[in-house]
Design a protein around this nucleic acid. Sequence first.
DNA 1: AGTCGATCTCATTAGTAGATGAGAAGATCA
DNA 2: TGATCTTCTCATCTACTAATGAGATCGACT
Lengths: 268, 268
Amino acid sequence: MKEPPTEGRLDRQRARQRAIAADVMADGSVRIEALVEKHGISLMTAHRDLDALVARGIVRKTRGVVTALPSSLVEASDLFRRGRQQAEKAALARAACAWIEPGHAVILDDSTTTLNLVPLLTDKAPLTVITNFLPIIEDLSGEPDLTLIALGGRFHPWANSFMGHMTVAAIREVRADIVIMSTSAITDDICFHQTEETVHTKRAMFESAATRLLIVDHTKFDRRALHALAPLTDFDQVIVDWRTPAEHVERLRNKGIGVTVAPAVRGR
Amino acid sequence: MKEPPTEGRLDRQRARQRAIAADVMADGSVRIEALVEKHGISLMTAHRDLDALVARGIVRKTRGVVTALPSSLVEASDLFRRGRQQAEKAALARAACAWIEPGHAVILDDSTTTLNLVPLLTDKAPLTVITNFLPIIEDLSGEPDLTLIALGGRFHPWANSFMGHMTVAAIREVRADIVIMSTSAITDDICFHQTEETVHTKRAMFESAATRLLIVDHTKFDRRALHALAPLTDFDQVIVDWRTPAEHVERLRNKGIGVTVAPAVRGR
DNA sequence: AGTCGATCTCATTAGTAGATGAGAAGATCA
DNA sequence: TGATCTTCTCATCTACTAATGAGATCGACT
């Protein structure tokens, strides 16, 4: 028997911050003292929680009271999104992994799905991994079986990755067998991203790889972003999760796009 | 009073691995069982330690016995560089820091001395830091005040850094105000390094910076290495620690080389 | 086939980073 | 200036991570 009821320290903190955010939004504004009593925490902790929320742009602190900010931002915040679709991402990673053969040179972009892919890679050794994503670099620096090629350049803290013209130049120095990338949003069957730098970097990756894999979880079909990267028809295969509406899958297939539906993983 | 005797878990592990490596090198080859007894550890732990050393290319495992590999690489390994002459390195870092001005673009090479420099950098913000050394990259990725430019390329586990032609190409893309580098050995007042890749990479750094600083602790005058980098006269300033024999300092100065002697830091 | 060594797995333990709270010191407002 | 709120500092605690060792299984050499 395991212990699902045991809330981790980290979970508890996040749950509490969520609850506080909810409190604030419910009433529009709340006294900090009230939060202290309601949640049975110290004043200091209340302040720390609130500062975290302020940093995310969810609430505002003003001398003793906390005020809510427009809810759209709140919902967009990763506080409410983080860690979701974990099962989907794992399934996508597993499906993508099937395309990798020992000896390949693989480009991985900066996305949480590719991060999920990393633990699966050791099975495919020897392998060359090329990436601009710092968490992957850190993970793989300890792996003796894999050759790691980091794509340097300017570091972007919000993405935890390296992007920009230096990164693009570095990518042009390599030729990979396969690139596995994800996207922020899909509109009219075209990939979109939040910033131009992202697009430049990913496009270079795209052009340096023989086989192009796109990884998409079903939420991406509902989202929008500013900068176009490429139409889905340019990819050799699009991998979607099992919760993707059938209409999307069918439409893409009718366009001649290779679509893999990653099935839910059971057991484990 | 603090507790310098209390070895952290991590330190203990590293110290033990160092000791094991020393054992192996002393005799050329050692039985694994002997290591188990000598260090009072389990067979499993011995294997794990050895695997770590194998991964760094320091020793070889072959059915029950461990053999040493050529010592040049071993000495270059950060396992041995790390943690020695800590006071000297701190002093050198401090002296080097005096050359850095806010707004500068600074290249740091892969050395433990430059790693010591990192905590001092936040005072100089805004600053652009360019490096191929993974520990520095990891440290600075959390610093919002500094611009971090990573020099990518193939990862070399024994040095914990990126080197090779991709790295060189990346360096050529930038122009820095100052480069702070160290060296493995000094013979005939010329810098030497263990591998050609190191030399190529450092030379590129050298050529991309307006001001060149060389950091040298006193042990480097007693050591030798294979590949020449550049004569000391090519550097704008050579920073040595206070334990460097006066003869060296004088000789360099007579050659017209700018030499700074970093004084011992007291207190702290 | 038999022996010795390597690896795997899993439970236990130790060390650590991070969260928390109490109180002091610092800001800010009226 | 007084009152109220915020930040800082430091000690304490706790939940997690990583190291470790015992035994079982796997593998390879002769």
